[in-house]
């Protein structure tokens, strides 16, 4: 069984995400438009023993991992798919129909070339077909990497839950286990609301990626509710946003997640070498 590393490098800074300021987002976008700067951070992280990176389908990041993989065979990748914000942008520009059109047209062609039997089954003709098409498109760039898990993006998960489309999560998990032979996981910003729903529907999901931090940042519907669930949880939880966007120092963040709450896995984003030394020096104690 593939194991999940204790500390995972997140890719938010590489993708220009910051919760603190527009200035920081611009700085990240500029810096990480150069693949070498991404390589430098991942390389340093690996030297500290953090060998798994979790990322969306981002060209620069995948290029960086590919380059590093030639020297460091033990690098692992946890994809978080689909690239929701790219799709949101596409739908803003061309409307929802052009987005649907793009996905189905692209993959009907691809499936016709690679898997005519799936076409015959009519998979690409319905909603679940569209969904599995989307997964395949998104994972295309990851296929040569070792993937200890594949995670469904939080916006997709939360949207599915809110629209009573829980079965979509099951379909994702089954599809990932069968076709990609790895652990399926789901991300959420509604951990406290989602977990009882998962229990109620008896969903077979291997791991959950959710915000956990001392400030309660993005711990919905309340920090207390999330903590109560964490206490009795039997599934693998990967804590994210442990630094609450950067307002908690790494020492307190890791202590809270690993020592106080007993969570086994955490994800952390790193934007610079100083930050890498400061954060990973502490992370190393827990590896």
């Amino acid at each position: 069984m593939k194991t999940i590393d204790k500390v995972i490098l997140g890719a938010n800074p590489f993708e220009g995400v910051s919760y603190l300021s527009q200035e920081q987002r611009t700085q990240y976008r500029e810096k990480f438009s150069k693949t070498d700067n991404i390589i430098e951070i991942i390389d340093t992280s690996m030297d500290f023993g953090v060998k798994t990176i979790s990322t969306g389908n981002n060209k620069n990041i995948l290029e960086a991992i590919q380059t590093l993989e030639k020297e460091k065979e033990d690098i692992k990748v946890i994809p978080v798919i689909p690239s929701v914000y790219e799709y949101v942008k596409k739908s803003s520009l061309g409307g929802m129909s052009s987005l649907l059109d793009g996905i189905t047209k692209y993959n009907k062609l691809k499936l016709a070339l690679k898997a005519p039997s799936l076409i015959k089954k009519g998979l690409s003709k319905d909603v679940f077909g569209l969904f599995s098409d989307l997964i395949d498109i998104e994972l295309e760039g990851f296929k040569n990497f070792e993937m200890p898990a594949i995670i469904l993006h939080g916006v997709t998960v939360d949207m599915a839950v809110s629209l009573n489309q829980i079965e979509l999560l099951s379909v994702f998990c089954e599809f990932i286990r069968e076709k990609y032979d790895t652990k399926p996981g789901i991300a959420t910003h509604n951990f406290g609301k989602l977990m009882p729903i998962i229990e109620e529907h008896d969903l077979d999901i291997d791991l959950i990626l959710a915000p956990v931090n001392e400030r309660g940042f993005m711990m919905n519907p309340s920090r207390e509710k999330c903590l109560e669930i964490i206490k009795n949880m039997d599934k693998t939880l990967i804590a994210k946003k442990i630094l609450a966007g950067g307002i908690i120092n790494p020492e307190n963040a890791f202590k809270y997640v690993f020592d106080n709450l007993g969570i086994k896995n955490a994800m952390v984003g790193i934007a610079g070498l100083d930050e890498a030394y400061q954060t990973l020096r502490i992370a190393k104690k827990y590896l």
Partner: peptide
Amino acid sequence: IYGVELYEPTEFLIGV
């Protein structure tokens, strides 16, 4: 004062 510091949990959050 950062928005992160002002964060109040919400019943449900789609996106950020």
